[in-house]
Structures are given as C-alpha cells and as structure tokens.
Amino acid sequence: MDLRIFTEPQQGADYDTLLRVAKATEDLGFDAFFRSDHYLAMGSSDGLPGPTDAWITLAGLARETSRIRLGTLMTAGTFRLPGVLAIQVAQVDRMSGGRIELGLGAGWYAEEHTAYGIPFPKEKFGRLEEQLAIVTGLWGTPVGETFSFDGKFYRLADSPALPKPAQERVPVLIGGLGATRTPRLAARYADEFNIPFASVEDSERQFGRVRAAAEEAGRKPDDLVYSNALVVCVGRDDAEVARRAAAIGREVDELKRNGLAGSPAEVVDKIGRYAETGSSRVYLQILDLDDLEHLELISSQVQSQLG
C-alpha cells in the first residue's frame, strides 16, 4: 500500500509551508506529495495568506525535491486551456526529472470562478473528455509530427506538440463517483482511478464499475491503479487524536466514520479494509500543515506496518 501526502493549500498555506511539508514527505519515506488545484478557501477558513497556483507550486517543488512523485488531485479543467496545460505539465515533468502525475477533473467550485473571473461553462464533462484527448494526444505525437484536433469545444491545427515530458508517459489520474460516464472516461484515458472521501462500500462499488468499463473498452482492469483519498487524523492516544481533530475543526467520531482517524492500529486496520476493495494507494489529506509531528507519527507507526 502506497501512502501519499495530499494537501489543500487554498485553506491557508504559502509556498514555504508547502515546501516544508514536501521535504518532510520525502524525508519520511512517503511515496508522493500531491496538492489540490483551487483558488478559494472552502468552509470557515479565511484562506490567508491567499491561494497558490498548483503548477507553479509543483514547478518549485520539482527543483527542491529529488525522489517523491508530485501531482494534482485534481487539476480543474476549467482553469487552463488543454494545450497550455500540456505544455505546463510537460515542462514541470522535465524540471522534476520525470516525477510528475496529472490528476485532471472537470472543475466544480463555482464560487472560485466568480471570485477570480474564470469562466464556468455549463457543459464541463464534455470539455474534460476533449481535454484528456488533447493533452494525451499532444504528448503521444512523435517528435517531428504534428497534432490536430477538431472537437466541439477545442480545435488545434498542426501543433508541433512540444515540449515532450521526461517520462514516456505521464500518469493520468481520473476520479469521482459518477456511475457511468466517469468509469468510461477512466477506462479510456486513466492510468489511475481515484475515489475521493468515500466509504469502503462505495469504493468497492465504484472500483467494480471502472473494472467493468475497462473490460468493455478492451483493457485489462488490473492495468489501472485504484486509489482513495481520505482525511487522516492519527494520535498515540485519545487525547492526541482529539487535539488534532480540534485543530482542523472536526469531530473525532465523524473523522472515524468518514476518514482515517484514531490510533495507528485503528488506521492500519481501516486502510486494510480499503485494500480489500482493490485499492493499492491512499492519499492522506493533511489539513494542519504546521503539524509535521503528525507526518512523523504516520510514517513511523502506520506506514511501517503496511509493508
């Protein structure tokens, strides 16, 4: 089971904070550092000191780290034109020496679009499908050849399809709980399918849909990586768990129902239940980015038991 650190900087974090967490992620033996792609805080957070851009952040971290994978859960399809996104991701992949992964979603948070003057189109899923075709098509075009695309939402003509990523194939992550269109899209384009903040039962059901869609598309279901994203709150005793829950404005019982919370043994046991659904990777949503001792505890007493 791979454990990856997943951050939500729009809730309040600058680049220096993210750099500290990324370096701790690398030093403590975690597999990867991922971040959300949002420009506005959610809930009661004031979001100070303000948003950071996902791909600018990852470009910086690409030069400041050496081992961990880096990526997004999920880049909003509404934020960037697909050709521009393909260039950005390829460049950051080269800057990292081939350690980038692209999570790409349709975009959903209308308020952040309004706040920063970003168009929020009604038809987002169709755009996402074309974006995936364009980004992967640009990367997959042999050097010296051109790429063209004539879709409903985007048109590219005779693109040189440069630059190329350092990796032969940048892993593409698709996720969500949609019952029909999402599994089909994953079967066509995804290297990894991620389920955000869902129960063991819902994860098992959705993984089953994706496996069926992969078979229907002529792919082996096991060609995809299956993963979960879950909030984490671990403590050596009840008082430490309660303190960490209070720091992120959550209740312990709620966290235990909807995430990974409790003692290291409790968390290891619940991760095992997700593993039984076919999940081989968990993105641990870390909401208190100043609590690096939390990462140390997870590394020493949770990750160490998972093999």
Rank of each mutant, 00 (worst) to 15 (best):
Y109W: 12
E168T: 13
P183G: 09
L132A: 07
S299K: 00
Q305S: 14
Y116H: 11
L132T: 00
L162Y: 01
R63E: 14
D158R: 12
L287H: 12
P264K: 11
Q131K: 09
D31L: 12
E192F: 02
E204M: 04
R127D: 07
I134A: 05
L260Q: 09
I298A: 09
P171T: 12
D27S: 15
F33S: 05
L3G: 00
G77A: 03
P142H: 13
E111G: 01
V225M: 12
H38L: 02
R211D: 05
G29C: 06
H294R: 06
V234G: 01
A110L: 15
F149V: 03
L255N: 03
D202P: 00
T7R: 01
L61F: 12
I195V: 15
A212G: 00
E276D: 14
L132M: 08
P9Y: 08
F34L: 15
H38A: 05
V210H: 03
V210C: 04
G50C: 12
H294I: 06
W108T: 01
T17Y: 01
R236M: 10
A90I: 07
A133V: 02
R99H: 10
L177A: 10
L61C: 12
L162Q: 15
D14I: 00
S44R: 14
A106S: 14
S148H: 10
S263G: 06
L70K: 03
L58F: 10
R209E: 11
G249C: 10
V21G: 06
N194I: 10
A229D: 14
S36Q: 11
A186E: 09
M74S: 04
S159G: 09
L224D: 07
T78A: 04
Q167L: 14
T136D: 01
G83D: 10
Y154I: 06
R184C: 00
T72V: 08
I271G: 08
E112D: 03
I87P: 00
G97C: 14
S159F: 11
D46Q: 07
I248V: 15
G140M: 12
A110Y: 13
G137F: 12
S159P: 05
E8V: 13
I118G: 03
T114F: 13
E215Y: 01
I100N: 01
T57F: 03
S96P: 12
D202M: 08
R209G: 02
F147A: 00
Q11H: 13
E204L: 10
A24C: 08
D27E: 15
D290A: 14
R211A: 11
D150V: 10
L102N: 06
P82T: 08
D288Q: 05
R4Q: 10
A186C: 06
D46E: 05
T7E: 00
R94G: 12
G98E: 04
Y15M: 08
D31Q: 14
E130A: 08
A110G: 11
L58K: 02
G208A: 05
R181F: 13
A110T: 09
E254Y: 15
T72N: 02
F207T: 02
K270I: 09
V268Q: 10
D291W: 00
H294T: 02
Q303F: 08
A186N: 08
V210I: 07
A261F: 07
L132F: 02
R80M: 00
F30I: 04
G151N: 09
L173K: 01
Q305K: 13
R94F: 07
A187P: 04
R80K: 04
